[in-house]
Nucleic acid binder design. Structure first.
Lengths: 208, 208
DNA sequence: ATCATAATGTGAACGCTGTTCATTATATTT
DNA sequence: AAATATAATGAACAGCGTTCACATTATGAT
């Protein structure tokens, strides 16, 4: 009897439907419109029903965040075709920025919102933050490649160097997305960001 | 008749009392507890009364944010005593991190929350974001000093270079405060951040 | 001192939020 | 067909920002 299997399959299908509805709300309406009631409405369920599939909103956001980090990590994959380590690292940085600009609301979920991380904390130390770690690991990999190739010689710690590069680009992205670039004229913001990216690439080579 | 003056003074005093109450709530209870109702309760007023002194919550947050940026800018002042440009810049970075760690909730208000920036947007293009600009200007000043002294030679654009340095430290601070350092073991996080800061200082000198 | 006017403060309400729980409806098993 | 297990829901709670008709208090003019 495949009833048990069908039930399970249907259950995960409904779970996925909830996640997709939430993702759509994120992308189309912004994170502020992602309420349990709005999600419920788009899948034509009662708000209470969602709680049969997710313990609470934080867990739902966590699941969504994990998916989003998967997307980001996948978007990094193409850069492994590039050989020159410095160019490769630069490409990762631009992929990161591209993702941030194309999915600002998902980016917010991944790096700004409290909800998903509270879910991680609530789960205790048993389950680490796997999706975030996996995405970061790709950058570490790129950095290690540069160290092994003898292009980056000032450190042998790929993790620290990767975090430095990540922080640089992440800082730029968040300052922009959180509207803190308002100190610059609107028509100059894009150009300034590109200048910063170019300057950082140069600094990595020769210093400032 | 100094009645007019007294009235005005009393009005600004009450406005200030509201801001102080809000600031206290920020620092002691966290940004989530800063509700109009909680602010009203701590100054023993009705929630509706606050709207006689601030158009809405966003404007209140904006006023608070401006004060906080003033604090940050003031905390930068001591570094101007340092002569060597690289050391000076490094000191600014550490002051920034120090501020972020000592006032995480204010930092959130300054760099993460939407409210205050929505107030800026609502005011239209007439009033720029002065408090943020002023704080950034100090970093530009430090960077310009380094360029003029011939220590930083790879660019003559102090603003771009300042934004690069700001982004680097800001990215590190936000990743930490937004709990995205969870990919590292808890007891290693502090050390890793210091390693990144040290590495960046080194990279500014010689590249990676 | 009395009265009109201006300034200041408030209670109650609206629609929104996440979440819980007793109840109802549906599907499966006996 | 009856009993049981699964799935879904309506209603409620306490919180949120905000508005507005109303009440209170302080000022100015007579």
């Amino acid at each position: 009897m495949g009833i048990r299997e069908r039930k399970e399959r249907e259950k995960t299908e409904r779970r996925q439907a909830i996640l997709m509805a939430a993702q759509r709300l994120f992308n189309e309406q912004g994170f502020e419109k992602v309420s349990m009631r709005n999600i419920a409405e788009t899948i034509e369920y009662s708000p209470a029903t969602i709680y049969l599939y997710f313990k609470n909103k934080n867990e739902l956001l966590f699941a969504l965040q994990s998916q989003a980090f998967g997307q980001l990590a996948r978007s990094f994959e193409s850069v492994f075709a590039i050989e020159h380590p410095a160019k490769q690292l630069e490409a990762v940085g631009h992929k990161y920025l591209e993702f941030a600009f194309q999915h600002p609301e998902l980016f917010e979920l991944m790096f700004v919102m409290n909800g998903p991380m509270q879910a991680v904390e609530a789960r205790g130390e048993t389950t680490p933050w796997a999706s975030g770690r996996a995405a970061f690991e790709r950058v570490v990999q790129v950095m290690q490649h540069g160290i092994d190739a003898g292009v980056f010689t000032r450190t042998d710690n790929a993790e620290t160097a990767a975090l430095m590069a990540w922080s640089q680009v992440h800082g730029l992205a968040t300052l922009y997305l959180r509207k803190r670039m308002m100190i610059f004229p609107e028509d100059r913001r894009q150009a300034i960001m590109e200048e910063v990216m170019a300057l950082f690439a140069q600094v990595l080579q020769h210093g400032l």
